[in-house]
Write a protein that binds this DNA or RNA. Sequence first.
RNA 1: CGGGGCGUGGCGCAGCCUGGUUAGCGCGCGUGUUUUGGGUACACGAGGCCGCCGGUUCGAAUCCGGCCGCCCCGACCA
Length: 436
Amino acid sequence: MRLSRCLIPTLKETPAEAQIASHRLMLRAGLVRQTAAGIYAWLPAGLRVLNNIARIVREEQDAIGAQELLMPTIQPAELWRESGRYDGYGKEMLRIRDRHDRELLYGPTNEEMITDIFRQSVRSYRELPQSVYHIQWKFRDEVRPRFGVMRGREFLMKDAYSFDLDHPGAVRSYRQMMLAYMRTFQRLGLKAIPMQAETGPIGGDLSHEFIILAPTGESQVFYDAAFEAIDYSGGSFDHASDSDLARFTALMTTHYAATDEKHDAAAWQRVPEVDRREGRGIEVGHIFYFGTKYSASMGFAVAGPDGAPLHPEMGSYGIGVSRLVGGIIEASHDAQGIIWPDSVAPFRAVILNLKPGDAGCDRVCDELYGRLGTGVLYDDRADRAGVKFADADLMGHPWQIIVGPRGAAAGRVELKRRASGERADLTLDEALARLG
RNA sequence: CGGGGCGUGGCGCAGCCUGGUUAGCGCGCGUGUUUUGGGUACACGAGGCCGCCGGUUCGAAUCCGGCCGCCCCGACCA
């Protein structure tokens, strides 16, 4: 895309309301604009990031056999009365009335709705196990939204639900999902650590939070650095293999990791001092096993092998997709701006035409842009070089292809890697090859 | 929900305490010149219901009351 024709409104100065790095940078790099407390519009570059994250999340969900569907944002209050959560959820739930005075709500999560869908359609044990997920906007009327998209009221969440016939099956689903989560975070360039968690209002007795370290995190966390060395990719663990899942679970549970509520000072002392990682943590995912809490309260049963009704065992699994945008920036930025991991960058590279109007620069840039396509951004603005360098660093494109008059005349460009600052003087073909 | 703060061109702010002509400054934006590898310089120009409602006053951005919005600190959450 040509930057001169893009709605990417970068800011030189930081808006007063933005306190933390990711919020400041998201506003300055033109990714989002706030429309109300905790509610944001996603501008083109921001949406590209959001979609890239969603794509990776989706691929990893699909890889463990979860099926994508899409449930509505608006739900009838009736469903929540059945589970008993309508009154219990409190003021965080945004309640709405339609013209017929029927009570509705903007969904903060979807356990009730998915249970309702399953009970309408699934009758036999032969149809289970199944897992489904969707990526949908949620609304939680937080008392105090803050930190930009990290703690918004409206947010994009991937939520998945598993239905199994028995406890061992549910645990297997839980472990597969945990593996999918670790793979997802690894591909996003994040060191996310699973930690034992409280189950909160969702209920159940097995739960993990996935936490990344960031100075602006909301709780104190502790973990063993051994986690950072683990490779979760398909070559290391097969999600369909019970022995691989057991080995994976053992790794996840033997190394120390805890939030401050569950912190065990004695166990912490047994972690070698050099491996102790401690700091503020941001929760980017949360998974729960809660057995028959919803299938029983909402009357979802399938016929078992003996014909007797059986309440399926359930789990639910969330990833804060929009929060991850902020989380990744918290984990990857410097004084100049964002440093996008290649996997989520809105554009894999930017072409900087340092002198639009110069025949050589224009020719080289046009050729590069033509060959690289719309996955790159072409800074064709009639601005000074300094403005373009500053904006490119701010926006955090993984690669910068710098085209100046001297180089262009010689058929050469400079390729700069945002993360390392490394620069190389190359021919066009060499630069294109380097970009892959 | 307790505590604190702030609403003045797109952004960052000053002015308010001690009411008084056309409401300022920096950045950004437009035009021209300049500059041409790290947010250049000069000139000219456009752009403001001073959050909203009411009150006090000859006169309100400024004083008083109410309301709305936003931010920060704490208790709660993907």
